[in-house]
Design a protein around this nucleic acid. Structure first.
Lengths: 157, 157
DNA sequence: TCTGAAATAAAACCTAC
DNA sequence: GTAGGTTTTATTTCAGA
């Protein structure tokens, strides 16, 4: 069977199932994956290795409850650097460990950053680091109607 | 040793290392975790079980390259429901599988949603589902200066 | 690209300390 | 929390189709 590269957006049905299962529980043993997809363990192990090597699977992470590790407050920051300070702002963002995720986006705002903090006072201190070089807009997270999930996986035709 | 619950935001040093290791690679075998933290395997297995049961570890997920599964375009949607339609909008958001994450937030906008689509045309079709009940603001993701990561883990004193 | 067999390694479970 | 022992499972490697 012809195998398609990462840009094609098409996995065969078995790979799609493997990916979906791992997206839901990254710690299932390979042997159990094999049973679920109806192939032998070595065969699934090799598919896994290929999915990793080709970049389809970027890695495996534990989801940690932020409140459990001292960060009960989450917020989203929209960050608009003042003219000429984009690079410096990007650098500051990367250097703040409480910023756990950040995308560069189109539109008025340049960056959208997720922050995890222990308190609103900490949030204030964090924002102060950006104030000289950027305008910010902060929105506190109240709840999460959609938790991280995969979009639909369409197997190859 | 007294073990603290999820709300305390304090793990002992060993649990903190286990959590950090798993956040980085959720598929490390328990035996290897044990070697890394200098405890026996059964002991680490029990800590793991407790971290899972207490909700510190919410789960394990594979990170999948969206482009590899057919979604090269990512965008953030800020969604402001028209008065009286908040619940309906929340329902629509949950029902759209291309919305892979959504937080309810404070401020003018009610929801912040991450969408993964195959094309801008698909994005348009997606937005059309919300148009009757909400005002939306869309920002396309250009790059990700900070990939998902853990905030600093402070072990208990 | 798959299966199946064999060897190595690890997990799960137990008891005693 | 460790140590030891046992059973069950999983991983890896390789031959062969």
């Amino acid at each position: 069977m012809k195998r398609l590269g990462i840009e094609n957006g098409a996995l065969d049905a078995v790979d799609a199932r493997i990916v979906a299962l791992l997206a839901d529980n990254a710690r299932i043993p390979t042997a159990e994956l094999a049973r679920s997809v109806g192939l032998s363990a070595p065969s699934v192990a090799e598919r896994l290795r290929r999915l990793e090597d080709s970049g389809v699977i970027e890695g495996y992470m534990a989801r940690i409850a932020p409140a459990a590790i001292g960060y009960p407050v989450s917020a989203w920051l929209r960050v608009r650097p003042v003219p000429g300070e984009l690079k410096r702002v990007a650098e500051i963002i990367r250097s703040i460990p409480e910023i756990t995720e950040c995308d560069r986006i189109t539109g008025e705002d340049c960056f959208l950053a997720r922050v995890r903090v222990a308190s609103v006072a900490d949030l204030e201190r964090l924002l102060d680091q950006l104030v000289p070089y950027a305008m910010t807009n902060t929105a506190i997270v109240q709840s999460s109607p959609v938790l991280p999930r995969l979009p639909p996986l369409a197997p190859a035709a």
